[in-house]
Design a binder for these strands. Structure first.
Length: 426
RNA sequence: GGCGGGUUGCCCGAGCGGCCAAUGGGAGGGGACUGUAAAUCCCCCGGCUCUGCCUUCGAAGGUUCAAAUCCUUCACCCGCCA
């Protein structure tokens, strides 16, 4: 069963590097294997980049292995230099603690913590890092590290060439190595996985385990996902795509997948979908036959929105998309359908007694544009629409006839950026 | 500690007393074409009470009719020397 897991991951393009594939296969074939992946609290939520790794965790658990999810309550206070060309600014203790709680909560949705023998375990590296004194750290841990080797790590050497690195971030790899050692001791955990940028940190852990415990452990890294045009995956104009529904709405999340570049779709399906190879290949074939229909986009959007936000939210997002982008007349829609669709969008409200603000003010108020200047620009360029009709006059004030069901306006910037205005009864 | 170089709008990077809201590229946005793709072409890209005004060129002062451009101090970065 296990080599089937590895074969599947390979087919999906989810394996970047392993320390020793033969030994790893052997280990996995022995039966349920404990493994860990760490997530540092650097924001109030995980994002799509984290999701790639998190779903690999899930795949391992579904294949019978036992996940240990580690939240970096300690490492998050220090800052990982990997993949960064400048020093991170330190976050406040209380803030990081708050983020730890939120991230724990998110992780718990993707893994099974209640199941049987291979139920997932949650840990926090602050548990063993906080009690450690500076002297213990230097004598018991630091002694096993050669600065020469530490300097040769990619994460450090690249920083020596760009803006330099503080002693704090330089020490990061030691903390992460210690985590692996602790989990090896406490949980007999012999496998750590992570993004391919984590290679150096993970290997530092393997070395430490060998030196201190004389033990052998394994490492598997997952490629960092890029878009086919070479840009960073998971970013939109508005920034990162978050898993938290308050930071990226389920509707926006669904739209992210639906709007993905055609060229990325086959890879995204392999990386994110839990459908099997036959199903995925058939979707890819359908997509190639008629890309305009975006069957594969829709399938992927649906699967992931359901997974991350639940079936109900997914259906709402999907119906909203149909209602708002369907080419029918908005006034013909059923009120319930329209209200549900609009509820997915960013909105602003106006009291019924108040006169409606001008076109430019409305656009700016909903946040589809950043400022009134931007609103003027967009109107002048012919990119602003009210209820799907282009409006070119900046000072235009919507009349009551424009109100859908007497209380809504649908604003659009460009092809796909929507917002709504609701007139509230007094 | 000493000497030299640097800090410009989201990013890179010109400008080196008035013609500078500041050249150019990238990212981003709008339009056209398509499919709520991509590529391509055209346009835009600090803010506002918008033919004008306000705030920006590391920070704070100063010189000048006038400063991103000159002077002083401070902070940070990067070299070389100790």
């Amino acid at each position: 069963m296990t080599s089937a897991l590895i074969a599947d991951l390979e087919w999906r393009g989810l394996i970047a590097q392993t320390t020793d594939m033969e030994a790893l296969l052997e280990k996995l074939n022995e039966g349920s294997t404990k493994f860990y992946i760490g997530f540092d609290p650097t924001a109030p939520s995980l994002h799509l980049g984290n999701l790639v790794v998190l779903l690999v965790m899930r795949r391992f658990q579904l294949a019978g292995h036992k996940p240990i999810a580690l939240v970096g309550g300690a490492t998050g206070l220090v800052g990982d230099p990997s993949g960064r060309n400048e020093e991170r600014s330190l976050n406040d203790l209380a803030l990081v603690e708050h983020w730890v709680g939120r991230i724990r909560n998110q992780l718990s949705k993707f893994l099974d913590f209640d199941g049987g023998a291979n139920a997932a375990v949650m840990t926090n590296n602050l548990d063993w890092t906080k009690p450690l004194t500076a002297l213990e750290f230097l004598r018991d841990v630091g002694k096993h590290f050669s600065v020469n080797q530490m300097l040769s790590k990619d994460s450090v050497s690249s920083r020596l060439e760009s803006g330099g690195i503080s002693y704090t971030e330089f020490s990061y790899q030691v903390l992460q190595a210690l985590d692996f050692l602790e989990l090896y001791r406490r949980h007999d955990c012999k496998l750590q996985m992570g993004g391919s940028d984590q290679w150096g940190n993970i290997v530092a852990g393997l070395d430490l385990i060998r030196k201190v415990e004389g033990g052998a452990a394994h490492c598997l890294t997952i490629p960092l996902l890029m878009k086919s045009d070479g840009s960073k995956f998971g970013k939109t104009a508005g920034g990162s795509v978050w898993l938290d529904p308050d930071m990226t709405s389920p509707y926006a999340f669904y739209q992210f997948w639906l709007n993905s570049d055609d060229a990325d779709i086959p890879r995204f399906l392999k990386v994110f979908s839990f459908k099997n190879r036959v199903e995925i290949e058939s979707l890819i074939a359908t997509h190639e036959r008629n890309p305009g229909l975006r069957e594969a986009h829709r399938s992927l959007a649906r699967e992931l929105t359901s997974l991350v936000h639940g079936d109900l939210e997914c259906e709402a997002a999907e119906r909203a998309a149909q209602a708002l982008f369907g080419h029918g007349d908005l006034f013909e829609l059923e009120e319930r359908t329209l209200v549900a669709a609009l509820s997915q969008l960013p909105r602003t409200t106006v009291a019924a007694g108040e006169p409606l603000p001008s076109w430019v003010d409305l656009l700016a108020a909903t946040g589809v544009v950043d400022s009134k200047s931007a609103a003027r620009r967009i109107v002048k360029e012919g990119g602003a629409y009210l209820n799907n009709e282009k409006v070119l006059e900046e000072s235009f004030i919507p009349t009551p006839e424009s109100l859908l069901f007497g209380r809504f306006l649908l604003l659009r910037k460009g092809k796909r950026d929507l917002a709504t205005v609701e007139v509230l009864p007094e």
